[in-house]
Design a protein around this nucleic acid. Sequence first.
RNA 1: GAUCCCGUAGCUCAGCUGGAUAGAGCAGCCGCCUUCUAAGCGGCAGGUCGCAGGUUCAAAUCCUGCCGGGGUCGCCA
Length: 576
Amino acid sequence: MNLFNSFRAAIVEAVESLVQAGTLPAGLPVGAISVEPPRDASHGDLATNVAMVLGKPAKLAPRAIAEALKPLLAALPDVTAVEIAGPGFINLRLTPAFWQARLRDVLAAGTAYGDSKVGGAAAVNVEYVSANPTGPMHVGHCRGAVFGDALSALLEKAGYAVTREYYVNDAGAQVDVLARSAHLRYREALGESITIPEGLYPGDYLKPMGAAIAKADGEKWLKVPEGEWLPAFRRLAIDAMMVLIREDLAALGIVHQVFSSEKALHDGGAVTAAVDDLASRDLVYTGVLEPPKGKMPDDWEPRPQLLFRATQFGDDIDRPLKKSDGAWTYFAADIAYHWDKYRRGFGRMINVLGADHGGYVKRLKAAVQAVSNGAASLDVKIIQLVNLLDGGQPVKMSKRSGSFVTLRDVVDEVGKDVVRFIMLTRKNDAALDFDFQKVREQSKDNPVFYVQYAHARINSVMRKAGAVAAESLDGASVERLDHPSELALIRALASWPRLVESAAEAHEPHRIAFYLYDVAAEFHALWNLGNDEPGLRFVQDRDPGLTRARLALIRGVATVIASGLQVLGVTPVEEM
RNA sequence: GAUCCCGUAGCUCAGCUGGAUAGAGCAGCCGCCUUCUAAGCGGCAGGUCGCAGGUUCAAAUCCUGCCGGGGUCGCCA
């Protein structure tokens, strides 16, 4: 439990004892009581809204409640002062010893500091990337990949049992396009000169695949009709693409535990089973849809078709399950996919999707509601676009010619750590600028380097301190860390567990990047105090005890930074 | 037309699921290297939180309606 929640529990207890004493009426709602760090540090260490929240239900003035609580809160361990402020805030001040003890917590836990049990080991499925296996990954996929991976790590840190999953769209027309494109490259590898017709994939990445098949199978697929080679090329091409994609992901440090196949859902009867299941609960019917609004498709004609009652679950229209040729729609397979996830034991699902899937969210949520009878939850995180820039100028990409900026290009250019960190410096639903020039810069403009620099600087001090740092810091006299800036830094470290919990609950890994930046800034500030006042430098040659205490402090900073970077999947650097 | 996202300092963005006097970084101005890494730090200046209502003890935050910018709309995947 984070320290704010511990105090919250103590405050709720105090309220209950006032109820016992008859000062407050029984049956008060305590759910809205919060304990937070005050925005303004001069207000103290903790602030609670308890008196204001209870004012109305208790039919008492907030300040009167606050006055009644004051002696009880003042008697709590570690509390040095209780102040009532503004409309009824209660501000608590804590002893330096309390904060110094938190530093010991950090050192004792190491990078496990911040690990939480709020998740209760609940199973969460995070589906991310799920790029169509028709080519290498490009930068557009990158942000979602990093986001999903960091979110997974964050949820794990918060105590959830996370499964990282990739949904492979290996069914449908695009796979035929891929297979035909691959066959063309195969013919090319056997000496034919080819032209790539409109509608097939022109990218060079298919050349090695064609060559490999030519080498393995010779002219086996050259003279037979398409009906014979197509199934084989479908499988070969998908497999090869998935190898490529896994390599791309590995370059970013991303490994999925589960790859689910759309085709397998069809072949294994899951689609039929899922739709039957819905039909048995009257969630499927045959009806006629209104024509789509906006731009009217040329070939629209109203006709009866199999529909899912998505409107019962908040969607705008009911959604088709079968195409005119009798095949299942993509959405039907998606229903089956989530039906399958639920049956695999996932009561919590998170889908990380690209910006172009915004219109898909309602029907997905409807599907999850339907297949789980309302028991499962789905959160869909839409990842907005990344604008690739170089010195403020847009980087040109042409998807048609097959020459787009690949994920691998970017990782090779600036490195995995930079890509990952930058991708998390904006919340997922806002667009993000990725400027190569800025990202290569080693300055404060570049948040990655700023945070890394703090970590490296700490290591530099440790090296400088030599023998003192070599000894264990466990027994350091942390009570000597009594400067306001030192205590402020400890407070920042001590808020890490709370941040982990709130970021995990909100599914917002970007908060970690911002937090680390703040911690780094606070450390750099303390460092510079030592420039003006030599007595505040970490290493004090004439006072090994004080040196050890301060080294303990900055080791704590390095530990929390490392702990946060670990969640983001970024390697802390020791030296710069 | 429907739907989703965005609108906060000149620029790029945070704002801890409703709290107190709205915060950073760039850019501008003024300072700090005989120093544990100046790859850094301190200070000044900069705001009708798009607009208008509503809910609340309390709204940048929640609700409604507008105004701007962007995405999406299909029997595609």
